[in-house]
Amino acid sequence: MRQVYETNVFGIVRVTNAFLPLLRESAAGRILMVSSMRGSLAEPGAWAGQPSMPYSSSKTALNALTAHYAHEPKVNSACPGHAATDFNAFLGTRTPEEGAVAAIRLATVGPDGPTGKSFHDGRELTR
């Protein structure tokens, strides 16, 4: 559990805090967290199958970080879905390209776009 949190929570905080001074100076600064439906406490699909407590709870914490960083340049999190990557032995039901759509959309959101939100397939997730 500590190793998962070190990567999915504490590592994200260290990298985000390191880049904040530069992002604050940028006219189009964006922070994009990569989360998961597993991080939601209320989405129907979040508890499908056999969720891993370390992974799921670390993504819940990441969604909370997204909300806490919302006062900074645009900060959002994307949930790519079950994309076929080496993380899941390429057993995902989506291609990596399909999983990347939400991240690309949020990384290029305009100045009036959302901040502090988590999205999956263009829909804001319930925390």
Results as ranks from 00 to 15, higher is better:
2 R>S: 11
3 Q>H: 14
3 Q>I: 12
3 Q>T: 14
4 V>Q: 07
5 Y>E: 06
5 Y>I: 07
6 E>P: 01
8 N>E: 09
8 N>Q: 11
8 N>G: 06
8 N>F: 04
9 V>C: 07
9 V>E: 01
9 V>S: 01
10 F>R: 10
10 F>P: 08
14 R>C: 06
14 R>K: 15
16 T>C: 06
16 T>Y: 05
17 N>H: 09
18 A>E: 13
18 A>C: 03
18 A>M: 05
19 F>D: 01
20 L>Y: 00
20 L>E: 02
20 L>G: 02
21 P>L: 09
22 L>V: 08
22 L>S: 04
22 L>N: 03
23 L>V: 02
23 L>T: 01
24 R>I: 02
26 S>D: 11
32 L>S: 00
34 V>L: 13
34 V>M: 05
34 V>H: 02
37 M>K: 12
38 R>C: 11
39 G>E: 03
39 G>L: 06
39 G>N: 03
40 S>V: 09
40 S>F: 08
40 S>M: 08
40 S>G: 10
42 A>I: 10
42 A>D: 15
43 E>V: 02
44 P>I: 10
51 P>M: 04
52 S>R: 12
53 M>A: 15
54 P>L: 06
55 Y>S: 10
56 S>D: 08
56 S>F: 00
57 S>C: 11
57 S>M: 12
59 K>R: 09
60 T>C: 07
62 L>A: 13
63 N>D: 11
63 N>T: 03
65 L>Q: 04
66 T>N: 03
73 P>A: 01
74 K>T: 01
74 K>W: 05
75 V>H: 00
75 V>M: 04
78 A>Y: 13
80 P>Y: 06
81 G>I: 06
84 A>I: 06
85 T>Y: 04
85 T>W: 06
85 T>C: 09
87 F>N: 09
87 F>M: 15
88 N>S: 05
89 A>N: 15
89 A>R: 09
90 F>H: 15
91 L>P: 00
91 L>N: 14
93 T>H: 05
93 T>V: 11
94 R>P: 07
95 T>D: 06
96 P>F: 12
96 P>Q: 13
96 P>R: 13
97 E>Q: 14
99 G>M: 06
101 V>R: 13
101 V>K: 14
102 A>G: 14
104 I>P: 00
106 L>T: 03
107 A>G: 12
109 V>F: 05
110 G>Y: 02
111 P>K: 12
111 P>V: 01
111 P>D: 08
112 D>H: 08
114 P>V: 10
114 P>E: 10
115 T>S: 09
115 T>Y: 00
116 G>L: 00
116 G>W: 00
118 S>R: 04
119 F>S: 05
119 F>C: 04
119 F>T: 06
119 F>A: 01
120 H>T: 11
123 R>V: 15
123 R>A: 12
124 E>P: 11
126 T>A: 13
